[in-house]
Amino acid sequence: MNIAKVSHRFVEVDGVRVFYRTAGPADAPTLLLLHGFPSASHQFRRLIDALGDRYHVVAPDYPGFGHTEAPADFPYSFDSLADVLEGFVEALGLTWFVMYVFDFGGPVGFRLATRQPDRIAGLVIQNANAYAEGLSELARQTVANRPGVPGAEDNIRQILTLPVTQSQYLGGTTDSELVAPDGWVLDQYFLDRPERQRAQIALGLDYHSNVELYPVWQRWLQSHRPPTLIVWGRNDAFFPEPGAHAYLRDLPDADLHVFDTGHFALEEFLPEIAPLVADFVDTVARQDAKPVSR
């Protein structure tokens, strides 16, 4: 039985002490895992166990999430998260990698891709939206929260509660018994910390900036055509199934798999998704063999 040995580390990036999990041989193809809201790198713990013996797997926590420590005056925005991610990959010497983007990992990762396209060997997209048709009515209501809108901050505070966090894990699942409670309990622990409330409210008010960048990201996908695997939970309350199919307009050769689950598809369908990711990384490595990241 091959089980990954996972290391838990910090690296300094422009005053931010970034926590990350890493596993696997340093000379293997690199898989960069970008987490979503309201989680952190711990959401990938089982995927890292499954793949970390074969690939160089790296999963950071963004500022405002998980174990990463940011200064009290850190300016929370999606641009700022991308700035830190860009510094993170530089600090670790990650020059060429497959990037797995989920939820918030989409806007953070796509910003990195448009800044550093030569680093992106391929994409795994899981319930990370970049198209208007991938926004549910609930998502559109969330996007409407922005600075200056009456009640916007209170609307975001209501999202940072345990019932909402739990519903993001269990909503849309086929078998809720397959979803461990550890994820939402740990997520809520971090959300309830006073400094994290400020971070999440600021990011919530900035979410509209991601939708405004959809055309930019779509043009990048059209022009660069990165090899892409799409895995999607069709019952996602925020990013429904049409958002997955929309990618095929710009990435007609993408490999699309839709699962009968919700937002956190890995929680219920890891045994089905992990082999798809492994096969995809192997294919990318064979087709575009470049020096791997250290």
Results as ranks from 00 to 15, higher is better:
9 R>G: 00
14 D>M: 01
16 V>E: 00
25 P>A: 08
26 A>L: 12
36 G>P: 09
36 G>Q: 07
38 P>G: 08
44 F>Y: 15
50 A>M: 07
51 L>G: 05
55 Y>P: 02
57 V>T: 13
63 P>W: 06
70 A>F: 08
73 D>L: 06
77 S>M: 08
85 L>H: 06
88 F>V: 05
102 F>K: 03
102 F>G: 03
102 F>L: 05
111 R>W: 12
115 R>A: 14
119 R>G: 09
119 R>H: 10
127 N>Y: 13
131 Y>P: 00
135 L>C: 15
139 A>C: 14
146 R>P: 03
149 V>G: 08
153 E>V: 14
163 P>D: 12
163 P>Y: 06
165 T>L: 13
170 L>P: 02
176 S>W: 07
176 S>R: 06
185 V>F: 05
193 R>S: 01
193 R>G: 00
198 R>A: 14
202 A>I: 03
204 G>S: 13
205 L>S: 00
210 N>H: 14
214 Y>A: 00
220 W>D: 03
223 S>E: 15
226 P>I: 06
231 V>M: 00
232 W>G: 00
240 P>Y: 07
244 A>R: 03
245 H>P: 02
246 A>G: 04
247 Y>V: 07
250 D>P: 07
254 A>F: 08
255 D>C: 09
267 E>G: 05
267 E>A: 15
269 F>M: 08
269 F>P: 00
274 A>M: 07
278 A>I: 07
292 V>M: 04
